[in-house]
Nucleic acid binder design. Structure first.
Lengths: 113, 113
DNA sequence: ATAGTATATAACTAATTAGCAATATAGTCA
DNA sequence: TGACTATATTGCTAATTAGTTATATACTAT
């Protein structure tokens, strides 16, 4: 495994988006449909200004996009990979809770890709 | 998609580890074998103290582990999921560069899992 | 025009942390 | 022991950012 400098920056930026509970909850709220900021706030418990800031960040990195209908701004996920990553990571963490992954299976993982 | 509070914290913590170029480079250096801190520093260009701090963080969240042999500390990846996540994310980002993912394929992604 | 609502932005504080230099710790070897 | 090396830790600065409050912007309805 090896990274080009630009790739590693971009990769890190996307993971950084996922590295915050509030944003994971926003993604969970958007996983099956677009939603207004109000709706997102109610579902996540985030304050409006805070949610707005997270959404701005997620929009800037290309994870969500926004459709405006009158006063309402409907956000949706436009990088569905992130959902896939979340589900994968969640599954791995759950599995790792009890048995613990053997140390020697790295190359298998690499070669599977 | 929905998260339990504990899950979302743990998920975010793991993604946070991946949200930093220096740590991605460390993972790349460790992807196929354990390596000493010296070795890691040479391959990544990180200063020793800085690498040591990143490794500490990665060890604390259970992504790497350390074997001590005399003066040398050999670090290895013990959560191979993270490699899988990196490769997946990298592939998705590369694919997204040109064609751009359609907005309506979210449920497919969810249901595939 | 005015009031009310949805969202975005600004200003601020507190917390985190990346990077660096200096120092401490620990093992090796002469 | 003392010199040397590998790693960890500490103390510092600068940058980022999460959360909050207050305010601005934009649309709607009366």
């Amino acid at each position: 495994m090896d990274f080009y400098p630009h790739d590693v920056e971009q990769l890190a930026q996307h993971f950084r988006i996922l590295g915050e509970p509030a944003r994971l909850q926003i993604l969970a709220a958007l996983c099956d449909q677009e939603r207004s900021v109000q709706d997102i706030c109610q579902r996540t418990g985030l304050h409006q200004a805070n949610a707005s800031k997270h959404l701005r960040m997620m929009k800037d990195t290309g994870v969500v996009a926004c459709r405006k209908k009158g006063v309402w701004h409907y956000y949706r996920i436009v990088a569905p990979e992130v959902l896939s990553l979340c589900l994968r990571a969640q599954k791995s963490l759950k599995q790792a809770e009890t048995p613990l992954v053997p140390d020697n299976s790295l190359m298998e993982i690499i070669e599977q890709q």
